Deep mutational scan, measured.
Amino acid sequence: LGPKYVGLWDFKSRTDEELSFRAGDVFHVARKEEQWWWATLLDEAGGAVAQGYVPHNYLAERE
């Protein structure tokens, strides 16, 4: 699936296409579209919880 990303700060969605998340949440990014990335929010087991657009500057690649 490629690298995983972690949320740096809490983010509250403003549209139906955006995905709310908390700092520390883990994502798989499917598409990078300039300022907004289409991402899947993952649970602790790595299963998909939700999908939506997230601001790229709120995520960091997980080491």
Rank of each mutant, 00 (worst) to 15 (best):
L1A: 12
L1F: 13
L1D: 12
L1K: 12
L1I: 12
L1C: 14
G2K: 12
G2S: 13
G2C: 15
G2D: 11
G2T: 13
G2W: 14
G2F: 14
P3M: 11
P3Q: 11
P3G: 10
P3S: 10
K4W: 13
K4T: 14
K4F: 15
K4Y: 15
K4R: 11
Y5P: 00
Y5V: 00
Y5W: 09
Y5H: 03
Y5E: 00
Y5M: 02
Y5I: 00
V6P: 02
V6H: 05
V6N: 03
V6T: 06
V6S: 03
V6L: 06
V6R: 03
G7N: 01
G7A: 15
G7Y: 05
G7C: 06
G7H: 04
G7L: 08
G7P: 04
G7S: 14
G7I: 07
G7D: 04
G7E: 03
G7M: 05
L8R: 07
L8A: 03
L8N: 04
L8M: 09
L8W: 06
L8H: 04
L8V: 08
W9P: 04
W9T: 07
W9Q: 10
W9S: 07
W9M: 12
W9H: 10
D10S: 06
D10L: 11
D10M: 05
D10Q: 06
D10T: 05
D10Y: 07
F11T: 03
F11R: 07
F11A: 01
F11V: 03
K12R: 10
K12I: 15
K12C: 15
K12M: 14
K12V: 15
S13D: 03
S13N: 07
S13T: 03
S13A: 15
S13H: 05
S13K: 10
S13E: 04
R14A: 12
R14F: 09
R14K: 11
R14I: 10
R14L: 11
T15Y: 10
T15P: 01
T15E: 07
T15M: 07
T15N: 13
D16C: 11
D16F: 09
D16R: 09
D16N: 12
D16H: 11
D16W: 08
E17R: 12
E17K: 14
E17M: 14
E17P: 05
E17Y: 12
E17D: 14
E17S: 13
E18F: 12
E18V: 13
E18D: 05
E18I: 09
E18H: 11
E18C: 12
E18N: 07
E18T: 11
L19E: 02
L19W: 04
L19R: 00
L19S: 00
L19T: 01
L19F: 04
S20A: 06
S20P: 03
S20E: 05
S20I: 04
S20F: 04
S20M: 02
S20L: 04
S20Y: 05
S20Q: 04
S20C: 08
F21I: 05
F21S: 00
F21R: 00
F21T: 01
F21V: 04
F21A: 00
R22I: 08
R22N: 11
R22K: 14
R22Q: 11
R22L: 09
A23Q: 09
A23R: 11
A23W: 04
A23P: 04
G24P: 01
G24Q: 02
G24I: 04
G24S: 02
G24F: 00
G24T: 02
G24E: 03
G24W: 03
G24R: 02
D25R: 01
D25V: 05
D25Q: 06
D25N: 07
D25K: 02
D25P: 01
V26K: 07
V26W: 10
V26I: 14
V26D: 03
V26C: 08
V26Q: 10
F27E: 00
F27Y: 02
F27H: 00
F27P: 01
F27M: 09
F27A: 00
H28E: 13
H28S: 10
H28I: 15
H28Y: 15
H28G: 03
H28Q: 10
V29N: 02
V29E: 01
V29H: 02
V29L: 02
V29M: 01
V29S: 01
V29T: 01
V29I: 09
A30G: 12
A30V: 15
A30C: 13
A30E: 15
A30K: 09
R31V: 08
R31T: 08
R31K: 10
R31H: 10
R31W: 14
R31G: 05
R31I: 09
R31M: 08
K32Q: 07
K32F: 09
K32I: 06
K32W: 04
K32C: 08
E33M: 09
E33I: 06
E33K: 06
E33G: 14
E33V: 08
E34S: 13
E34I: 08
E34V: 09
E34C: 15
E34K: 11
Q35W: 14
Q35M: 13
Q35F: 15
Q35P: 06
Q35I: 11
Q35L: 14
W36Q: 09
W36N: 06
W36P: 00
W36V: 08
W36C: 07
W36E: 02
W36R: 15
W36A: 07
W36Y: 11
W36G: 09
W37T: 00
W37E: 00
W37I: 03
W37R: 00
W37P: 00
W38K: 00
W38H: 04
W38S: 00
W38N: 00
W38R: 02
A39G: 02
A39F: 03
A39Q: 01
A39T: 01
A39N: 00
A39K: 00
A39L: 03
T40A: 06
T40M: 11
T40V: 15
T40F: 12
T40I: 15
T40Y: 13
T40D: 03
L41F: 02
L41P: 00
L41Q: 03
L41M: 09
L41W: 02
L41T: 01
L42M: 06
L42F: 06
L42N: 00
L42I: 08
L42S: 01
D43P: 01
D43Y: 05
D43A: 03
D43T: 05
E44R: 08
E44I: 08
E44T: 09
E44M: 08
E44Q: 10
E44L: 09
E44C: 13
A45G: 11
A45P: 02
A45R: 13
A45K: 13
A45H: 14
A45F: 14
A45M: 13
G46Y: 05
G46C: 13
G46L: 05
G46K: 03
G46P: 02
G46W: 05
G47L: 14
G47F: 14
G47A: 14
G47T: 13
G47Y: 13
A48F: 11
A48R: 07
A48Y: 10
A48I: 13
A48P: 12
A48T: 11
V49L: 10
V49G: 04
V49A: 07
V49M: 08
V49F: 05
V49Q: 07
V49S: 06
A50E: 06
A50Q: 08
A50M: 08
A50L: 06
A50Y: 04
A50D: 08
A50I: 06
Q51H: 12
Q51T: 14
Q51S: 15
Q51R: 07
Q51D: 08
Q51W: 09
Q51N: 08
G52R: 01
G52Y: 02
G52F: 06
G52Q: 01
G52T: 00
G52K: 03
G52C: 07
Y53H: 02
Y53E: 00
Y53Q: 05
Y53A: 01
Y53N: 03
Y53G: 01
Y53I: 05
Y53V: 03
Y53T: 03
Y53K: 11
V54G: 01
V54H: 02
V54E: 02
V54C: 12
V54S: 02
V54K: 01
V54D: 01
V54F: 03
P55Q: 03
P55I: 09
P55R: 05
P55H: 07
P55T: 04
H56W: 13
H56A: 15
H56T: 07
N57M: 09
N57T: 09
N57I: 08
N57P: 02
N57C: 15
N57R: 07
Y58E: 01
Y58G: 06
Y58H: 05
Y58F: 11
Y58I: 04
L59N: 01
L59W: 04
L59Q: 02
L59T: 03
A60C: 12
A60N: 06
A60D: 07
A60T: 12
A60P: 04
A60K: 13
E61S: 09
E61T: 09
E61H: 07
E61M: 13
E61D: 08
R62C: 15
R62Y: 15
R62S: 14
R62Q: 15
R62N: 11
R62K: 14
R62G: 11
R62E: 15
R62L: 15
R62P: 10
R62T: 15
E63W: 11
E63C: 13
E63F: 11
E63D: 14
E63G: 12
E63R: 11
E63K: 12
